[in-house]
Design a protein around this nucleic acid. Structure first.
Length: 883
RNA sequence: GGGAGGUUAGCUCAGCGGUAGAGCGCCUGCUUUACACGCAGGUGGUCGCAGGUUCGAUCCCUGCACCUCCCACCA
């Protein structure tokens, strides 16, 4: 392969931009400038229009992943856009203490040191976590800065800050006093790996291939005994009854009998329970294990049965399991099955698909486990929260999420909020030596009932989400009546992934209404989850996109623009590496356009606004397009369609401003008419300035950098008014004429390609002045110099094309085209192909226009459009057919 | 068992009642007074399948197929 000749680049003059740019050279600098200048803090008098968001607080242990980058980019686009529109914008940053996740990180460290938290003790362990947090937490905050997020760092919050801890305690005490928090012994989801209870939402069901074991229980007086099916034989040692359906004739003979529990030899009553037992399933006989199954526990309550805990909090069999004590639950299962087989009690083992509950955090198999826990009674909180969404006080974008929200909220179950962890908000409940329970805002010194000073605080901490649900107002200082709370609450928009709709969004709405009387935000934008090229991101697939690496490689602007472009309304958001490069190319394109523009403006008189100048058609066209683009961008941003907004500005900037206007401007800028050149410079300047402003929320860094070059006002684009459509520049006649010109230029170029002529070969063009869009023809005469230039025409005549030339119709304009000589007429038979297409469409349209139903029922403008199209096609047919 | 969403160009996705779009890829030309991270031209789609509504359907309705994802205590 021959190497490209290396052309020495002329030494760059002292002024002028380099050809390409390095985002690393200015991204950090601009961020610091904005922050130093207080751009991220709300400015303006309280009461003036404001726009408030709180960040979904990432885990302190977290590192920025593509999902964060996506959500925060959307938020930052909103924040910057609203700021430029003159709102007092507040976007509150912060992190979440993330109970289990953080505790696990530090526990792993301890493990490496050969110790554990129990050896350390509670106090020293907690101190250790704080140390860890000081040393390595909050890295994600620096990463958000890299992304360009315009967060108000003066209001940085952490869910374990003293003020936020007070909010948590206040909320707990209030709910307790209102009877909405209670303590009790129930079967909860227990994660043996984490050593704590978790809520229903933290259990991930995975369908797994398992087995259904059919076990024979002896029943004195019933020779055939009772065959019981179970997927978890190890729990049988905790059986305290068998249950049958009261109306099941198959098992009527078992009524009132007592069965013998195999292995253990204990007697079990046979109870009748219509709720638990499904007559149509299996043998209709169910083993009842109250300590290890929530349904069985309910049966035990109804029939006053004891509960025997055979699996302990560590996942190992307890002393109650007799000879199996100390064995891991799965090992115990194996041994018990072996034993049953040996004793000939295993009637059958059938393959059975089971829904295995696993821990969201540790992936361990969840055990239903009977224990003392704290719960929130959620129904009374849910009702007003449902009503608020129904009434439109909270709106979901996209709307369809409301349905999911309702169905969950309407069937909501109590929330287990106690966690057997050390890292988190400790439950503010104390028990005195006489068993009195005290729940108060301040640590009590003596029991209010018996006066005892020997008080023990509940060892558990609260579910992390208990504090998260208060976030939109706890960050504002609630329950204190702070100025921020008065001024900035409720917030406006919440942006987050739909995956935490139940965990967080729903609970915030409930808590906000309960504690502040208002919903915490008026709009919830639930975005999709990021996938890479349609596939879930995973390390094994090797398709993980690390946003920090991407920022290194392409720049933060490119990463942001890519994410914004990918933002569809659907549940998945597909991001590809190729898109990142494309966005980087786009940034370079702007850079290059600015470089050209700046070179043109340099040292020349250029009015900042084209208003009052005498503008030519291309000027009017691009200003009209700019106005239209501004309107579209605004419409899409208002509708949370960041992809469409991004596409709009991309298309305008690249294909209209650069491909279109810049090329038309070149001959004018160097042409003989100084007034025209001056007007062109002014339009160029306005287009560049407005483009930079329009693009700023998406690509804040490169636009700010270029803004400084253009205006000499460093760091001010962030606070420049966002361009909005005024309609002032809208000019449809100019659009029609310039678009006709562009179409004709394209036709001339295609003509060359068709004829196999080199791109530079001169074409003689005739434009039929009798073509129907008369105004356009007139404009084209005015545009002649540009048309000649762009089309590289040897001649341009406004006359009926002579019979010898190739004829066609473009945008209604009848053209005659001719190459010098010796060119191939039409090597690929394109004319014939085009003719066939025209004929087909003519046939279709005439059929339509002969259909009386169409004529009478279709709207008149549509019919008129069809007529016009048909007329144009007929002209085109005549032109093409004359070859 | 309920519920939601999807199926459009080779890939990733927009569009959603009046003649099919983008980016990337692919093909052909190009050092054309910013940009090869570029310019110009082009290739490429019975818009999952079958019915229905309509003057007209990729778009609305019904059914089917396949794919995601949520929710649900069936041993």
């Amino acid at each position: 392969m021959p190497e490209k000749p290396v052309i020495a680049e002329p030494a760059e003059a002292s002024e002028g931009l380099p050809k390409t740019f390095d985002p690393a050279l200015f991204e950090a600098r601009w961020y610091e400038t904005w922050e130093r200048d207080g751009r991220f803090q709300p400015v303006g008098p309280p009461g003036s229009p404001r726009f408030v968001m709180v960040i979904p607080p990432p885990n302190v242990t977290g590192r920025l992943h593509i999902g964060h980058a996506y959500g925060r980019t959307i938020e930052d686009i909103l924040a910057r856009w609203m700021r430029m529109r003159g709102y007092r914008v507040l976007w509150v940053p912060g992190t979440d203490h993330a109970g289990i996740a953080t505790q696990m990180v530090v526990e792993r460290e301890l493990q490496k040191e050969g110790t554990d938290r129990r050896a350390l003790g509670r106090e020293r362990f907690i101190e250790r976590v704080w140390e860890w947090r000081r040393a390595s937490g909050d890295t994600i905050l620096g990463q958000l800065r890299k992304l360009g997020c315009s967060l108000d760092w003066s209001r940085l919050r952490f869910t374990l800050d003293p003020a936020l801890s007070r909010a948590v305690r206040h909320a707990f005490v209030q709910l307790y006093r209102d009877g909405l928090i209670y303590r009790g012994r129930y079967v909860v989801n227990w994660c043996p790996g984490c050593g704590t209870a978790v809520s229903d939402l933290e259990v991930i069901e995975k369908t797994t291939a398992g087995s259904l074991y059919k076990i024979l229980y002896d029943v004195p007086g019933v020779p055939e005994g009772a065959v019981v099916a179970t997927t978890r034989p190890e729990t049988m040692l905790g059986d305290t009854a068998l249950a049958i359906h009261p109306e099941d004739p198959r098992n009527a003979h078992l009524r009132g009998k007592r069965a013998i529990l195999p292995i253990a030899g204990r007697e079990l009553p046979v109870v009748e329970d219509a709720i638990l037992v499904d007559r149509d399933f299996g043998t209709g006989i169910v083993k009842v294990t109250p300590a290890h199954d929530a349904n069985d526990y309910a049966v035990a309550q109804r029939h006053d049965l004891p509960a025997v805990v055979v699996i302990g909090p560590d996942g190992k069999m307890t002393a109650a399991a007799g000879e199996y004590a100390g064995l891991d639950r799965f090992e115990a299962r194996k041994r018990i099955v072996e034993r049953l087989e040996k004793e000939d009690r295993l009637v059958a083992v059938e393959p059975h698909e089971i829904a295995l509950g696993t821990c969201q955090r540790s992936d361990d198999v969840i055990e239903p486990y009977l224990s003392e826990q704290w719960f929130v009674k959620v129904k009374p909180l849910a009702e007003p929260a449902i009503a608020a969404v129904r009434a439109g006080a909270v709106r979901f974008v996209p709307e369809s999420w409301a349905k999911t929200y309702f169905s969950w909220m309407e069937n909501i179950r109590d929330w287990c909020i106690s966690r057997q962890l050390w890292w988190g908000h400790r439950i503010p409940a104390f028990t005195c030596e006489n068993g009195h329970v005290l729940v108060e805002e301040e640590d009590p010194v003596a029991c209010g009932q018996c006066g005892s000073a020997r008080l023990v605080q509940d060892p558990d901490v609260l579910d992390t989400w208990f504090s998260s649900q208060l976030w939109p107002f706890s960050v504002m200082g609630w329950p204190e009546r702070t100025a921020d709370l008065a001024d900035f609450y409720p917030t406006d928009v919440l942006v987050t992934g739909y995956d935490i709709l139940f965990f967080w969004v729903a609970r915030m709405i409930m808590a906000g209404l309960r504690f502040t009387g208002e919903p915490p935000f008026s709009t919830v934008h639930l975005h999709g989850l990021v996938r890479v090229g349609g596939e879930k991101m995973s390390k094994t697939r090797g398709n993980v996109i690390d946003p920090l690496e991407a920022i290194e490689e392409f720049g933060a602007d490119a990463v942001r623009f890519t994410l914004a472009s990918a933002a569809s309304s659907g549940p998945t958001v597909s991001v590809e590496r190729g898109r990142m490069a494309g966005s980087r190319n786009f940034a370079t394109k702007i850079w290059s356009a600015a470089r050209f523009t700046l070179a043109q403006l340099e040292g020349k008189d250029t009015p900042p606004s084209p208003r009052g100048l005498s503008l030519r058609l291309p000027d009017r066209w691009i200003l009209s397009r700019l106005d239209a683009a501004s309107a579209e961008i605004q419409r899409h941003l208002e509708g949370f369609r960041f992809d469409e907004a991004a596409a709009e500005i991309y298309g305008f900037l690249w294909h209209e401003l650069c491909d279109g206007y810049l090329e038309m401007a070149k001959p004018v800028l160097s042409g003989p008419d100084p007034d025209a050149a001056r007007a062109t410079r002014s339009v160029l300047r306005k287009c560049l300035a407005d483009s930079l402003a329009l693009l700023h929320p998406f690509m804040p860094f490169v636009t700010e950098e270029l803004w400084e070059k253009l205006t000499g006002k460093p760091g001010t684009l962030v606070a420049t008014p966002y361009p909005e459509s005024s309609g002032e520049w809208r000019d449809l006649p100019a659009e029609a004429s310039v678009e006709a010109l562009r179409a004709i230029v394209t036709r001339v170029r295609t003509f060359r390609t068709e004829r196999g002529a080199p791109p530079t070969s001169p074409v003689a063009l005739a434009i039929d002045p009798r073509s129907p869009p008369r105004a356009v023809v007139g404009d084209l005469e005015i545009l002649s110099p540009i048309l000649r230039h762009l089309g590289r025409l040897s001649s341009l005549a406004f006359e009926t094309p002579s019979s010898g030339v190739f004829r066609d119709v473009v945008a209604g304009i009848q053209l005659g085209l001719a190459l010098p000589e010796g060119s191939v007429p039409d090597p690929e038979g394109r004319t014939a192909k085009a003719l066939a297409e025209v004929d087909a469409e003519i046939a279709q349209l005439s059929a339509k226009l002969q259909n009386p139903d169409y004529l009478s029922k279709a709207p008149a403008p549509v019919v008129e459009k069809t007529r016009m199209r048909l007329r144009e096609l007929e002209t085109k047919r005549a032109a093409l057919g004359s070859q």
